[in-house]
Design a protein around this nucleic acid. Sequence first.
DNA 1: TAGATTGTTAATCGATTAACAATC
DNA 2: TAGATTGTTAATCGATTAACAATC
Lengths: 221, 221
Amino acid sequence: MSESYPQVFQERPEVPDVVVSRLPQYVRTLSQLLSEGVQIANSQQLGEKLQITPAQIRKDLSYFGRFGKQGRGYRVDHLLEELKQILGLNVTWNVAVVGVGRLGRAILNYPGFTPDGFQLVAALDDNPSVVGQQVGGLTVLPVSHLADVVARYQVSIAIVAVPIAYTQQVVDRVVECGIQAILNYAPIMPQVPEGVNVRSIDPVLSLQSMTYYLANGVSPE
Amino acid sequence: MSESYPQVFQERPEVPDVVVSRLPQYVRTLSQLLSEGVQIANSQQLGEKLQITPAQIRKDLSYFGRFGKQGRGYRVDHLLEELKQILGLNVTWNVAVVGVGRLGRAILNYPGFTPDGFQLVAALDDNPSVVGQQVGGLTVLPVSHLADVVARYQVSIAIVAVPIAYTQQVVDRVVECGIQAILNYAPIMPQVPEGVNVRSIDPVLSLQSMTYYLANGVSPE
DNA sequence: TAGATTGTTAATCGATTAACAATC
DNA sequence: TAGATTGTTAATCGATTAACAATC
């Protein structure tokens, strides 16, 4: 074997995580511009909206291709579509919510996920008094149904909103079911195997870093 | 004046924001160790818990002082107290919640803020059918009372949970009242003057960066 | 075409890590 | 004291920014 075949996935060179994390913000801004009827935007204008240097925007985009026209800028609709494609946002992602306590209920009733293509397709909880309830249009199932649900609905993302004491074991089960993307609402960073992605929503951590600046009379940057 | 006097605030050289943002995680881990009865921990052990190199932990701490003993490590209770002091977590912070819709209600009923020293002392909303309601033990006030409330309760942090269309104007009013730390739950990055700190809780952005890895068959790092 | 803005390279900046003398 | 681990400096790594040739 003197030559290697191209790989199916991962043609791109390693894109820094920090770059990937900015792309959704670009999508947001471009969507807004599109809804305002703006047809063309240059990196300068995008940078102002996003508080990012134009150079950084161009550099970020250059990891994925050439989307602009010299002397003009970017077609808003075109760049938006390209970025959605790159991020996988042109399809609907099915999401299971594990944990239907106060937080889980708020999540299941939050109308902000669906318009962005995240469909909450299942709600699971192990509390017998909660199982069977209707929450956010879904019937709460026992967590033992997780593997079934994942297979049946092609779930690829789990939102975990269980008490801190159960978080790690629930995350373990979610991972066992083949889920590779987890949004965790407990104030803990669960351990997961290589290749599984966890993001935590942790308002207290955010507050605790802001108090540093309040207590010390300085502002960030 | 050939000599300048020491400043009241900001004796420390500029601590990078990324360092400040890690301190609350150290506090979390140390609290947990303390509750487990662990008395001494070294940077190696802390690093394992936090998935951070020991060198980084020592470097981070060195911005603020010398808290360990060579050959031993750190006394958990001592380091915890020092970090709480640095972050201003040894006092209670009064917080006003603006916006008492579904999200605001969930926030007001979330029991996780108080144990960490964030006291929700007021709930405000401009919807006449919401004003006067009892939510999370508080009577909802009209937003026009904001300045009063801030002064009376010494509020220094605002949690803003209003619809996206009102977010910027509510943030503007919050800033006018002298608030310098804002936790924003709307899917938008509000513009604020220099010196005001905004952190956004935005689960959709988190999901949208995870789909990149799902769609492209790669994992982060 | 002239003017403008991209895409990209090189320079700069800053954060992380390695290494080790200091010291408990 | 010998062994261990800190605190800190210097080396490395990576991300941001500046600059400019390419080109629309």
